[in-house]
Amino acid sequence: MYPFVYKSLPLRIVFGEGTSARLAEEADLLAIRRALVLTTPGHEQLGRAMAGRLGDRFAGLFAGAVMHTPVGVTEDALKRAADLKADGVIAVGGGSTVGLGKAIALRTGLPQIAIPTTYAGSEMTPILGETQNGVKTTRSSPEIMPRTVIYDVDLTLSLPVRVATVSGMNALAHSVEALDAKDRNPVVSLMAADAIRAIVSALPDIARTPDDVNARSLALYGAWLSGLCLGSVGMALHHKLCHVLGGTFNLPHAETHAIVLPHAMAYNSVAVPDVEKQIAEILGAHGAASALHDLAHRLGIPASLREIGMPEAGIDRAAELAIANPYWNPRPLERGDIRELIARAWAGEQPLVDS
């Protein structure tokens, strides 16, 4: 048995069907009396529905959250919070909205409640990624964490299949990387393996039968565990690449994770053969990287970074940024190999596993 340190995250989880009806009760537990509700422009109606559940605890709505948490948007939301004298924030939506809630909490100390509607998992992490001047940076602090997370399966039933599948692959990436993290431990590894099983079982069912409540529930459960894994151990090559690609080229977050995941798994396979074997067994395949690639293809997820807007001219720039201030990784990062990885992901080619 390898030596390890395990530290649990201090937060409250409310999971089930219809659980968002308990929002006012959960706000009271945090002594929130003037709540600022956060959404993206597309989720404004849902934000107003949650405002109705808050009753007189609702102070106002900010429906301006966007991908990659631009600092300028955060500054606008902070002004809105100050004008309303808000004493808490309620983030309703996916990773973009949760990220904005985290950014506000970090700067103000306000308690936050997250109500995720996708499988992004960021609500379970003390990590904030922000973009400014085309560069995405991350930082970690306990103040970033939501105090309460309400998982309501009912809110995911309207999530389009395309969004559900790419969001699920994003969550899957968190668990896959947790298994070979530098600070992995037996508890997180058990959660990661269970999350992978749940997600790979649920996503094909959602693709076939979008209103399958059991599949949606299983996917949300897997996303919760995946986010918890991401928040408990360090990140490596996969997340470094996705942060670079997303922040530099403004690529859609979940699609970037889904496309990069098999290639990052292939790159690291030679350094973590035990993890590669474990994931392959869970997927019922001979190779983890090819199985992840094939799963994404069966789910109809874009196969290449080119399809989601990355310019071919950006491959070299991405490779340079990926090896600058790199995260720890089980396999050393070599510029030529990283460039080839990115080029293959850009072209949508099969992941290359070194022998």
Rank of each mutant, 00 (worst) to 15 (best):
T165G: 00
V166T: 14
V166E: 13
S167D: 10
G168S: 12
M169P: 03
M169E: 02
N170F: 00
A171T: 00
A171Y: 00
L172K: 08
H174Y: 03
H174P: 02
S175W: 04
V176A: 06
E177W: 10
A178I: 05
A178E: 05
L179S: 07
L179E: 09
A181F: 05
A181W: 04
A181P: 09
K182A: 10
K182C: 01
K182M: 13
D183S: 10
R184N: 12
R184P: 02
N185Y: 09
V187C: 12
V187W: 13
V188T: 15
V188S: 14
S189R: 15
A193H: 04
A193L: 15
D194R: 14
D194Q: 14
I196A: 08
R197S: 13
R197L: 10
A198D: 14
A198G: 03
A198Y: 11
A198N: 11
A198W: 05
I199C: 14
V200D: 08
V200K: 07
S201M: 06
A202I: 08
P204H: 10
P204W: 10
D205Q: 15
D205F: 05
I206Y: 00
A207D: 12
A207Y: 13
R208K: 15
R208Q: 15
T209N: 15
P210L: 10
D211A: 12
D211H: 14
D212P: 07
N214S: 15
N214M: 13
N214W: 11
S217L: 05
S217F: 01
L218R: 14
L218T: 12
L218V: 09
A219L: 10
A219Q: 07
A219M: 11
A219F: 13
L220G: 00
L220C: 01
Y221Q: 12
Y221P: 08
A223S: 15
A223I: 08
W224S: 00
W224E: 00
W224C: 00
L225E: 13
L225G: 06
L225I: 02
S226V: 09
S226C: 09
G227H: 10
L228C: 01
L228E: 06
L228R: 09
L228M: 12
C229A: 12
C229V: 10
L230N: 06
L230P: 01
S232R: 12
S232D: 06
V233W: 04
V233I: 07
G234N: 14
M235R: 09
M235H: 10
M235N: 05
A236Y: 00
A236H: 12
A236M: 06
L237M: 11
L237K: 05
H238S: 10
K240C: 03
K240R: 15
C242H: 06
V244N: 04
V244A: 05
L245Q: 04
G246F: 07
F249I: 09
F249M: 05
N250T: 15
L251R: 01
L251N: 04
H253R: 02
A254W: 07
A254D: 11
E255S: 13
E255R: 13
V260K: 02
H263L: 07
H263T: 08
A264D: 02
A264T: 02
M265I: 06
M265E: 06
A266R: 01
A266S: 07
Y267R: 01
N268I: 01
N268D: 10
